[in-house]
Amino acid sequence: MKPKSQRLILVSLAVIALGVAVLLAMSAMREQAAFFYAPADVQRLGLPLDRPVRVGGMVKEGSLRRHDDGVTIDFIVHDETEHTIPVTFTGIVPNLFREGSGVVAEGRFQPDGRFVASEILAKHDENYMPPELSDRGLHKTETIE
C-alpha cells in the first residue's frame, strides 16, 4: 500500500470514528440527560414522567416528616415562587441536609406529582450551593444560619 493512500485511509477512519462517537454521544444524551427542574418549572413544563430528572430548591421549614421505617423521609421543596414539589427519599441524607437549606435531588416524578428521589446530591461544605441554584436568587436565604 502506498503511504499516501494509507494516510488517506487513516484519516477517513478517524473521521468515521469521530462520527460514531458523536452519534453515540448524541443518542445517549437525548435519552439520559437529566434535566433540572425547579418547582416553578414543573408548572410551566409539565411533569417529565419518561426519564430521571433532578429537582432543586429549598427544603421548606417544618415540612420534613419521617416514615415509621426510620429511613424514609418526606419533605417539600419550594423556591421563591408559590410552587412546591413533594419529595420522598429512602436512604441516609447527606450530612448538611436540613430544613431551610438548599437541596438537589435526582429521581423520577410519579404521575400524582410526587418526586421519588433515588439520590440526594451531597453538599461538600456549609458554603456550598448547588450550581443549578446559585443564580436563582436563593443564596441569600442559604447563608442565614
Binding site: A21, A34, F35, F36, E132
Partner: peptide
C-alpha cells in the same frame, strides 16, 4: 472516541448553560 464521549458529556452542560442559560446535568447513565 472514548475521549470524545467523555469530553462531550463534561463540556456540553457548560456550553448549553453559557448559550441558553438552561440548566442541564449529564450523569452516569450517559
Amino acid at each position: 472516541i472514548i475521549l470524545g464521549i467523555v469530553m462531550v458529556g463534561t463540556l456540553y452542560p457548560l456550553g448549553v448553560e453559557a448559550v441558553t442559560g438552561e440548566k442541564l446535568s449529564v450523569g452516569p447513565p450517559y
